[in-house]
Every structure is written in C-alpha cells, then in structure tokens.
Design a protein around this nucleic acid. Structure first.
Lengths: 196, 196
DNA sequence: CTTTTGTTGTACTGATTGGTACAGCGACGG
DNA sequence: CCGTCGCTGTACCAATCAGTACAACAAAAG
C-alpha cells in the first residue's frame, strides 16, 4: 500500500488523536468515531490506512514508545554512572511539570489489554526496546570496567524498568512525585551496587 | 436500602462476575449485560443494588483489595525483618502458580481509569490500605529497635509498593517471574538498609 | 487527454451499549 | 389473611459501537 506525503499526514493525525484519547480514556473507552472527530478525518480514511481498530492500537503503541524515548534522550548515550544519575533526573524533570506526574502510556495499555496475547507481545517488544538502551549502557560500563563482570546487564535493566513502572503508576494515581523519586533512586542505587 | 441474606448473595454474585470479567477484559471492555449473563442475574437486580455501572466498579475495587490482602495474610503480622522476607516469599509463591505471574487487578484499573478523579481517589485509598500494613510493620520494627529511628515508615512502604507494582506489571506482560523476584528483593533489601 | 492510483465524503448497517419502565414474584409481620 | 417490602423477569429505549458500500475527488503517470 503506497502512501503519498499528504496521506501520511492524515494517517499521523489519526494516530495522534487516538494516542491522546486512548491515554486519557483507555482503549475500550475510545471509539473510532471519537478519534475521527478529534482528528478531523473521515471514516473512509481510517479504514483506508488501518484494517480495523486493533491495528490502530498497534500503531498507537509504537507512537507511545517513540514519544517516551524522545523525552529521555540521555538513555541513548549512557557511558558512565553519572550518566545514569542524569537519566533518572531527566525522567523526574518530566514529571515535575505542571501536569504533574504522568502515567506511562504503555503501562496503561498493559493494565487494560495485558491479557490479549497479541497486545501483550507488542508491549513486551516495546518495553524490551526501552530496556535495551539501559542494557546497552550497562554493557558499556562493564566493558570499561565500571560494572562488575559477573553482573547481568539485561536483568539489571529489567529490574530498573520494573521499579520505574511501579513508581510511575503510584505517582500518577497519587499525584505525587515521591514514589517516582524513591523507586528510581532505589533502582539506580541497586545498579551502582554492582559497580566494580 | 435494607437487604436480605438472599439479596446479599445475589449482589455478591454480580460483583464476583464483574470482578473477574473486568480483570480479564478491562472495565470498558466489560458490559453490564455480560456481567449479568455470567452471574445469572437479571438487569433489574443489577440496578436494584447499584445506581449505575460506576458504582459497580467501586464495589469491584473493594473486592479486589479484599482478595489481595487475603492472599498475603503475613502482611498483617510483620514484627521482624525475617517476617518481611516471608511476606515477599508469600507473594512470589502466588505468582509461581500454574496461571503464571498475574497482574495486580488494582494496577489494571489504575492504567485504564487512572485519569478519572473519582476512581483515582478510590484506588489511592485501596493502595494506602494495602501499604498501611507495611507501614504498621515498619513502625513495629522501629519501636523494637530494628529500624533506624530516622526512617520514614510510610515513605518506605510507598517505595516498596511502587517496586512491587512495577514488578507485577512487567512480570505479567512478560509472563516471567524474574521481574517480580528482582523488584521485591530490591525493595526489601532497601528496607533492610535502614535497619539499626 | 486518459487512465490509474491514492485519497476522501456520506450514507448506511446490524449489533451492542448503559439505563429505564413496569408488572409480578415471594416472604415476612401484623 | 392481607399488606408491605424486598426481589426479580421482561420488554423496551435512544445512543453508540465497529465496520461497510460506493461514488467521487485529485494528481500524477502514460
């Protein structure tokens, strides 16, 4: 299915509107009609670019990952322990904004659709890509002797992600940044406990 | 609104069916009709005991909290550091079962409806009650000299809950217990780092 | 100019949504 | 034995749901 620049813009507008609505109202709480009304597109456009609503959700998940990674650019260049501290600080800065601590859009979908095997696989892939940047950073540290050779970078990254996700969840419903601060601090301290 | 034992049973059946369906398919993905079909009740019964679907969701949240606390009875009698280890082990045992790592039903709802201020408050209350048992345990430890006097039990409990929630989320979508193991281990180790 | 290809507007469908109306049921107290 | 009160079954409603049908548009390629 070829696509012209103009068509590309229309498709993006649909995904944008869907991403925002689904973040606020959940996936099941966001009808296709509302998405189209918010994006200004028509129904024929929606079903021209997506086979069905599920496929739109897939595109939204990808969009979420892009957004998330774009807001923490430091994660792509972790080469020292202070870099990890700066990464944590970059995340905290995001949540100190006027809109308060914000939930992780991937986590939102995980709760609602985590039992659907198809969605679960997509979310797993997204989280793994997110984590992979942490894993890469830890590998770099291990190579330059900052991380203990016996440490398992992938597993450490997974644990870090787990703590972060929980902090985001609790911080959001509590409208308080301290859960994010604490869980991130604990996670990074745990990483540094494997320093050599 | 008085209620007879028989009516009570009917109401419970509705809440039971709703709790299970909403855990699997999400709140918006669970229609009132499906709940009634699964519980064998009729529509007039549903709207006899609940003003609307939102009120049913509230009852479901309460039910979730009861279930959760019932499955980790040790949390009510934490009086030593080994008790915390046993608590963590009790949770892990739950998720080593045949159905694999299971998501936290409260976390599921948090993702889907966390932006609704009303639901958010209910979830906050539920999480606080859950945490309160950890806080009580830490207070006991502080009183008997096992926890450093300067430690903040409530905040420590909050951080523990955050790590646990994240571990549950990641463990569920990854169908792997290691995120829960690691995040719980990290959280309890962090607690013990404040021992005196 | 013509044809193809990507794009779009409008109208429509059958199913499902949350919620209501209302009559009838059964048990229990006077 | 009768009235009240809690409980229940059925039918119904307007609104919304995901998805389809189809004609028409624009632009670029031939």
């Amino acid at each position: 299915m070829a696509v012209t620049p103009h068509g590309r813009r229309t498709r993006d507008a649909i995904v944008d509107a869907a991403a925002e609505l689904m973040y606020v109202n959940g996936v099941s709480g966001t009808s296709v009609d509302k998405v189209l009304a918010a994006s200004g597109a028509g129904k024929s456009q929606m079903y021209h670019y997506f086979k069905n609503k599920d496929q739109l959700v897939e595109a939204v998940i990808d969009r979420y990952l892009e957004e998330i990674l774009g807001k923490q650019p430091i994660i792509r260049e972790l080469t020292s322990w202070p870099d990890f501290d700066r990464w944590a600080e970059q995340i905290l800065t995001l949540h100190r904004g006027p809109s308060g601590p914000i939930a992780c859009p991937l986590g939102n979908i995980a709760g609602e659709l985590g039992d659907d095997p198809r969605v679960r696989a997509l979310l797993d892939r997204a989280y793994l890509e997110w984590e992979s940047h942490l894993t890469n950073g830890l590998n770099t540290l291990r190579d330059n002797g900052s991380l203990h050779p016996d440490a398992d970078p992938a597993r450490l990254a997974q644990a870090t992600m787990a703590c972060l996700q929980g902090g985001l969840l609790l911080g959001h419903i509590r409208n308080d940044i301290t859960p994010i601060e604490d869980s991130l601090r604990i996670a990074v301290a745990h990483l540094r406990s494997h320093a050599s």
